[in-house]
Design a protein around this nucleic acid. Structure first.
Length: 430
DNA sequence: GTGGGGGAG
DNA sequence: CGTTCTCCCCCAC
């Protein structure tokens, strides 16, 4: 295992180096035996360093292992997979035996920091008791066992493949006051237009193929070379009603959302109509009806509206190809994409590359532990340079073309010949 | 397949 | 450092 950690930290060093020299990004890395520990240890030595959680890992007798002493000093809520709700339940559970004569925090909330170690060593603590505490209707099955594992630094979840397209695209906005129908319609128009732009940006691929270029074509060269990578089958409208004011000054702060969905109308994929036209139709024919389902009455006050394109189905599968190639593509169109997307996509790509390496560029964090080195010791060796990890790995890989497919002039969809007749009918609507 | 809960970043 | 905006997975029905 020492060897694997060594390789991992060299790999991380190398990836960080090429990310920096070729793309100009700095990032932090954490190296350990699973995603959980890598992620946690990767919080150290930001923003430039990398950290390896060194052995001894969990073993036989004493608790002198590094995993236990490392994870025990984390606040429960800091563990990935333990969010606000679960952390709250855990805190209540462990700090309720002795009523805790805390200082006079008058806000009524028991927000004492509870460390992982305190939960782990709590009397009677076990996977089973956690299931009792955390389980219930609506909660994932076996949550007790999974949280117990997390508290012990165990995590057997796979490093996942990055997808070429997301599962959903949504845009939302929050409002201080939104009570008239006219205002709502105006906002729906804005949101729908943004969503359509996002769909074009994320789901529409510029097809730079010179394919038999029928240059004789219309002047619509602009649309002719674009096609959808995926089609959202569903459109969903969500709202968040403003929680009723409580007179005691304590805000209810419920994030509760309600939603209704409908089939995504086919006209949104039409590349010939103008965005405004499509957006207008989407609002009138789909979003407003959904809104009326959601709020039949008249007395509402919304703090948020979300419009989502969901149920994305890949268009003609095509390249199941490496995510590395997708990453390269995404970097190419970075000029038109928000900064945050770049960061996240870069993350996923690198995470995916090999085993338990976690890279992150995100926010600051407390630094406590120090088991690795940041930089100076992690030097790329000669053998490392000689191996196959160079930039070409990120972008090569020629994809297999779908030769027997045809592209719809109207929306760019790729389909086999026999499907074209039926598909044309989609574009002829009542 | 739909609507909701919880979580990550 | 807290809030906002996206996106994810899971569950019950």
């Amino acid at each position: 295992m020492q060897l694997r950690l060594h390789l991992g930290s060299h790999l991380a060093q190398h990836l960080r180096l090429i990310l920096h020299t070729q793309k100009g990004y700095t990032c932090t890395a954490g190296i350990s035996t699973n995603k959980l520990l890598s992620k946690l240890v990767g919080n150290l030595h930001k923003p430039h360093g990398q950290t390896t959680l060194l052995p001894p890992y969990a073993n036989d007798d004493d608790e002198l292992d590094n995993v236990t002493s490392f994870i025990d000093n984390h606040e429960v809520g800091k563990i990935p997979g333990i969010g606000f709700k679960l952390a709250q339940k855990l805190r209540v559970h462990v700090s309720q035996g002795p009523p805790k004569p805390d200082d006079g925090q008058a806000d009524g909330d028991t927000k004492e920091a509870v460390l992982v170690g305190a939960v782990r060593r709590h009397p009677g603590m076990s996977a089973e008791s956690l299931e009792q505490v955390l389980g219930g209707p609506g909660t994932p099955h076996g949550i007790g066992a999974r949280i117990w594992d997390l508290l012990n630094g165990c995590d057997d979840t796979e490093v996942g493949q990055a997808r070429d397209v997301p599962r959903q695209i949504s845009i939302e906005d929050s409002y201080g006051r939104l009570e008239t129908f006219e205002e709502v319609v105006k906002q729906l128009r804005i949101l729908a237009t943004s969503l359509l732009k996002r769909m074009h940006m994320d789901l529409l691929e510029e097809d730079d193929e010179i394919l038999e270029s029928r240059a004789t074509h219309t002047g619509a060269t602009d649309n002719a070379r674009r096609r959808w990578l995926a089609f959202p089958k569903t459109v969903r409208l969500s709202t968040r009603p403003r929680p009723p004011q409580r007179p005691d000054g304590n805000r209810e702060r419920s994030m509760a959302r309600i939603s209704r969905s409908a089939p995504m109308p086919n006209f949104v994929f039409n590349l010939k109509e103008s965005l405004d036209t499509i957006s207008d139709r989407l609002v009138k024919e789909t979003l407003i009806p959904l809104f009326r389902q959601l709020h039949p009455g008249k007395g509402w006050n919304l703090s948020l509206i979300n419009v989502a394109a969901t149920n994305l189905v890949d268009a003609a599968s095509e390249k199941g190809g490496g995510a590395g190639r997708d990453i390269a593509k995404m970097f190419q169109r970075q000029d038109t994409v928000l900064k945050q997307f770049r960061v996240e996509d870069a993350n996923e790509g690198v995470e995916m590359v090999e085993e338990k390496v976690e890279l992150t560029t995100s926010a600051p964090q407390a630094k406590l532990y120090e088991s690795g080195r940041s930089g100076s010791e992690d030097i790329i060796t000669g053998s490392q340079k000689d191996n196959t990890w160079d930039e070409d790995r990120w972008e090569s890989e020629d994809e297999d073309r779908v030769e027997d497919s045809f592209r719809c002039d109207e929306c760019g969809a790729i389909m086999p010949v026999f499907a074209m007749a039926a598909h044309e009918r989609f574009h002829v609507e009542p």
